[in-house]
Simulated scan of single mutants.
Amino acid sequence: MARTRLLFACLALAAPLVPATAQAAPLHASGLVLSVQPEMGALSTTQLNCEPAGGLHKNAQEACDQLTPVEGDFRRLPDSGALCTMELNPTKATLRGKWRNKRIDFQQVYSNPCVVRASTGKVFDF
């Protein structure tokens, strides 16, 4: 009995010594690295976190909102219906990371940057 009280007393004294950093930032269930590389143009790369939305992506919340109903499969996003020129500038879109802890590694070449954005909504609009 005395041992139990001593143990509880030690724990009570040690509790304030636990660093405040023990409450770390929330883990993201989905973290993606996206890049767009036009044949005639510069490589653009960003990071998108979802659940909660964040990262360096300028449209993080909108991109996450679009990815959620399709379970992170941006290929299932509805086409925006935007009109694009018939410019030929092959553009590779790459997405790597995880969506709800499932690994994703995908790349696709589109005819130009406008078609990338029209086909993927806010996901590749960064």
Rank of each mutant, 00 (worst) to 15 (best):
V36H: 03
V18I: 10
L32E: 08
D79A: 10
A118M: 04
L34K: 04
P38C: 05
T68D: 08
G41K: 11
L88M: 14
L48A: 02
P26N: 11
A24Q: 15
P52D: 10
G54P: 03
L67G: 02
H28Q: 10
E51A: 08
P19S: 15
H57N: 00
V18D: 00
A9P: 00
D73Q: 11
T21A: 13
L77D: 07
H28D: 09
P19V: 15
C50K: 01
T85H: 08
P26E: 14
T68N: 03
G54R: 01
P78V: 01
R76P: 00
L56W: 07
A15D: 04
K98C: 04
S119C: 09
Q61G: 08
G54F: 05
S111A: 07
I104C: 08
T21D: 12
S30A: 13
D65I: 00
P16C: 08
A22W: 14
T68V: 10
S30F: 09
T94C: 08
V36W: 02
C50G: 02
R103T: 12
V109W: 02
N112Q: 04
L95G: 07
L13H: 04
V116G: 09
M86E: 12
K102S: 11
E87L: 14
S80E: 07
E71D: 12
S35V: 11
L67D: 02
T46V: 14
A53T: 03
S80V: 01
P78Y: 00
A82N: 08
V115L: 06
S111C: 00
H57M: 00
A9L: 09
G81D: 13
L11V: 09
P52C: 07
L48P: 01
L13D: 05
A14H: 09
G81I: 12
C50H: 01
L32R: 10
W99M: 11
T85E: 11
A42V: 12
S80Q: 10
L13T: 11
P26M: 11
V116C: 12
